[in-house]
Nucleic acid binder design. Structure first.
Lengths: 216, 216
DNA sequence: GGGGATTTCTGCACCGGGTATACTTTTACT
DNA sequence: AGTAAAAGTATACCCGGTGCAGAAATCCCC
């Protein structure tokens, strides 16, 4: 069985091709007609594959869309683990997010390429995809919890609390950016505000909600 | 039975009875055999109602379980709105949560009545129910965002950021409590720790994550 | 290059959640 | 009593997802 260096073997190559064929057929159809308006049977047909085979590659219809984001699920956790010594986890996450803004990483919500925006809109329009994104968020929380525990020497509950706050805030920032771009604001114009908002948000995380004025 | 007090009208009363009949049949069957092991057709039959009628009362299978929690979705928002003058929103939420712990409100995760625990376990065992709870959380965030904006005079983004943090933390606390009870710890014994943890969590929320030690 | 073992793919039948339609029963109102 | 509106029902259907048994492709060793 051992192919030592170059080739993945014909079988593996074909599998990979089939996989991308299915995925691309799916995205194309979904973007054109909407997620809920296209059945998996249609996707399978477009990819020239049986329905059964489609489900051998992607466990659910939603995964046809979301599998592309799989890497991002553990991204924050990896950033925390890889932070330089004597750096606070939060600082590392903040720098990473700011870098994401600079590079217009779609995960920051600050990418206005039509393709990206359309995918985003498609997700928002399909409740089951939104639900899937929530599971995603949960995964990110868990990964971050573990990363914090293993690299910051804090109790488990504290790690969990910090993780859920960090993930929630970052998600909220991204949603806010994406919302504004959906309204037509170009990424370039939004950038400065996005940075300011991110810094505000991370400062809130660092310093707490005390500043929320009491009413009366 | 009494015929005199006919304020709601026969039609309304019958509807209400049908509704609770369906709901109770559902809970009973789900607790006995598991959420995924019981079909809505079986629930309908047990409630002596057609499948179509069941879906006229509850839009999805999951709602058969979670409709009982509908009130809690806006609970935090209401607490914030109803707080006494010159009180910080966060303080109001904290006091409310601590009161929930004292009263063993199931939403704090600190209720170990068998019925409550079984429902909780049932939800955890069914991914679609977990997803539904996430939507719930989102609803709570939105309601709280609005409440904060309207009563605390802060910008929208700040309100959103605060809201997601608060909801996330409270949720994490409840999950932690429920997890421990699931392991067999009685609510009475857990209470002190739960209070301590809650105070820790709210202090973290108030004062920020600065205290997270840098490594190196 | 042949041929068996193994993996992948396929068609088909099936299940369960959810909806459309067209019809019957029940309640409400005068 | 009689009729309009509301609620309930039966049936057939769509779609996502799975089990199964067999056909086809790939691998690997001789």
């Amino acid at each position: 069985m051992g192919v030592v260096d170059g080739k993945p073997g014909l079988r593996e190559r074909k599998k990979q091709r089939t996989r991308t064929a299915i995925s691309e057929a799916a995205i194309t159809l979904f973007l054109e007609h909407g997620f809920n308006q296209v059945s998996v049977a249609q996707v399978a047909e477009a990819a020239e594959v049986s329905k059964r085979t489609l489900f051998a590659y992607f466990p659910t219809k939603e995964d046809l869309v979301v599998h592309r984001l799989a890497d991002h699920e553990t991204e924050i956790a990896r950033v925390v683990r890889a932070r330089p010594p004597r750096t606070a986890p939060l600082a590392a996450v903040r720098e990473h997010f700011l870098k994401g803004l600079r590079e217009r990483d779609p995960i920051t919500g600050l990418n206005d390429h039509p393709q990206v925006r359309r995918v985003h809109q498609m997700i928002l329009d399909a409740p089951s995809l939104v639900a899937r994104m929530d599971r995603f968020k949960t995964g990110a929380e868990q990964a971050l919890t573990q990363a914090l525990q293993e690299t910051a020497d804090i109790p488990e509950l504290t790690a969990r609390l910090a993780a859920v706050q960090i993930v929630a805030v970052q998600w909220a920032l991204a949603q806010d950016n994406a919302e504004r771009l959906a309204y037509g604001e170009p990424a370039g114009e939004r950038y400065a505000g996005a940075v300011k908002d991110a810094e505000h948000a991370f400062s809130l995380l660092e310093n707490g909600l005390r500043q929320l004025t009491p009413r009366g």
